[in-house]
Nucleic acid binder design. Structure first.
Lengths: 367, 367
DNA sequence: TTGAAAGCGCTAACAG
DNA sequence: CTGTTAGCGCTTTCAA
């Protein structure tokens, strides 16, 4: 049977209200009394009952986070950032894994909404309408998703793409492949947008493939398609796919980076330790998590600092060992099987769409 | 201003208690009344206030989990299992990352204790006393940690080691290295124990190194030591270290598995996709998380099924491409630098201790 | 500066 | 089967 505020009051010879004040609004109570109360509380090991407190104050001291997939190290990085910042601010965190299902995500937020003061939502697949409806239930902050009037921490994917393109262009690459992640994911649209813009400026041709599952297997699948096209560099939607590409290229006897350059996105731990170490764009995962919490709490505490509700975090290219000067077009000793026919490949989910520097947009991949 | 039970009562033309009953103990209320109440609740979008409910019932409907390091994919696997099972049981989950600091871990559990019905604790470094003291605050279930009277989900590390030893022995390996993880981690002690027992039975010599940081870098560091000793196989405390070993061996020009076999532990995603794919022991991470929650809830709901409080989950060896028949001792073309002197190496944290089949225990690594 | 009293929203006796 | 009553532990008026 836990100790209550009355036990403390009795031991300190004061009323419960005085104990309450001594604990939360200490300036309203005389110094000596406060000492006495605090001592009593310590001796008894008193811990306020959060339910009772929350019942009257209307605040819970908790925040929530929902992520689409805990197996993806990207989100565990975000989770770390969220948790550490929340703890600093005295908040505990509720956690839920939506398992990439938008309806589960919505249900989870709904379930949480009564016991948190706000929630950080990583929901690349949820619809705008869903998100807005959730915003009616509790304070929301989005991660990597831009929605008018809803605060969000954004990572500058487009800027990362620009850095990739500049890097590859400087190495003499004129024609690159982009392996799309899920078409309905904000990050993929953002990366593709940044890529098209940068490629157009750099007069680099981009051949698009996909969408693919943003995992190792997706990369394996994609590698063959890119190889058949004759590009000199492959830009993957994320590191997991890039790892799949590397694996497949190794199997096919294509030397990286001599015969093919490969770039990923995210800078997961494994990008640094695979062989050869992967050139990739570092996404500020923990910083993103922290920023999301800051935004959320500043909304909750009313300490909104007048800055707009969207905070954009910089990304930066990490050049490792999978990118090098473009090979000459003739030297491809080990590659034996090509894509069968160009016409047929234009349909279905793995169709390629050449995006020319002119800026024209392919019909196969409308945005 | 959220809708309360009274709003529903008014709309359904009943008292608040009837609403309450209709919602939680529906058999105590007439069918037609229940319908009416449920309809009213739905129309109003009523969601019970968990704080008020918990205040009177004394239960929160939440459980907590604390992990030592969210960057370790092992724990994110556990987290997934915990979350999915908790959700099935209607529980929400509080989450905290102890960041490998035992005092932080304790503080986190303490902070959680008032707003959860129990917590799953992954605390390889906390002392027994700390854990017992926490068990006084709230229901606890441990993961991979055996403590009398406290329920725990255990993974059979020792059994995994036995499988490794049998596998290597069958391949003709007579002398293997074990790279210790943290000495105070339960899993490491357990693995070492299983290894010694199995090696003794198989008449295999085991040379121990470490302890090392259970990460990629630790494996890199350890690889050189093991190489200098002339073993034909290296068993790493976990996959992260094994990956470091593979990387270092590749740098040193040692062919895996021809010249050296390598085995990991955990079966992380990356063990399957690295090159060459890693032979390792699969730890049932999600199943462990689910089992821990089952244990916890069966204690909470009083549905303890009479089974002892410790549930042991099986592990199994996944043979991939980093293990092969032992090389003959003479063929080591690429290895150039050896460990300087045997005597000196017996002190300090990276000392080696040969564990002979006799079962004698080395003084350098007391248990 | 302190205490008494009145709830926050809900559930659990206890009557009817 | 349903309504009335009495709190759960805390904070917050309002008086003193």
């Amino acid at each position: 049977m836990p100790v209550t505020i009355h036990d403390v009051a009795q031991r300190a010879q004061v009323s419960a209200s005085t104990v309450s004040r001594a604990l939360s609004a200490s300036h309203l109570v005389r110094g000596t009394t406060r000492e006495r109360v605090l001592a009593a509380a310590r001796e008894l090991g008193y811990q306020p009952n959060p339910a009772a407190r929350s019942l009257i104050t209307g605040r819970t001291g908790n925040i929530g986070i929902v992520v689409p997939d805990l197996n993806n190290p990207f989100y565990t990085g975000v989770l770390r950032g969220v948790q550490s910042r929340a703890r600093q601010g005295g908040y505990a965190v509720f956690f839920a894994d939506g398992e990439e299902d938008p309806v589960a995500e919505e249900a989870l937020v709904r379930a949480m909404s009564r016991q948190v003061d706000g929630v950080v939502v990583c929901a690349p697949f949820a619809s705008d309408a869903q998100l807005r409806s959730l915003a009616g239930l509790t304070s929301l902050t989005l991660l990597n998703r831009r929605l008018r009037d809803i605060p969000a921490a954004l990572m500058d994917s487009a800027g990362g793409m620009r850095q990739i393109v500049d890097h590859l262009a400087a190495l003499g690459h004129r024609r690159c492949a982009y392996l799309n992640g899920p078409n309905n994911a904000w990050s993929n649209r953002e990366r593709r947008r940044g890529l098209r813009a940068a490629a157009s400026r750099a007069r680099m041709a981009v051949v698009e493939f996909g969408p693919f599952e943003p995992k190792f297997e997706g990369g394996v699948q994609a590698a063959d398609l890119a190889l058949a096209d004759g590009v000199t560099a492959i830009i993957a939607y994320n590191d997991l796919m890039a790892l799949g590409v590397l694996s497949r290229l190794a199997d096919r006897g294509v030397a990286v980076p001599q015969e093919m350059s490969v770039v990923g996105f995210d800078n997961l731990l494994y990008a640094a330790v695979c062989a050869p170490p992967l050139t990739t764009v570092a996404m500020p995962m923990e910083a993103g998590g922290r920023a999301a919490v800051d935004l959320l709490l500043s909304g909750i505490d009313g300490t909104g600092d007048g800055a707009g509700p969207h905070r954009e975090l910089p990304t930066n290219l990490i050049v490792r060992a999978t990118t090098a000067a473009a090979r000459s077009r003739s030297a491809r000793p080990h590659v034996d099987n090509r894509r069968p026919a160009a016409g047929h490949a234009a349909s279905g989910p793995t169709a390629a769409a050449v995006h020319r520097p002119s800026g024209g947009r392919s019909a196969a991949l409308p945005e």
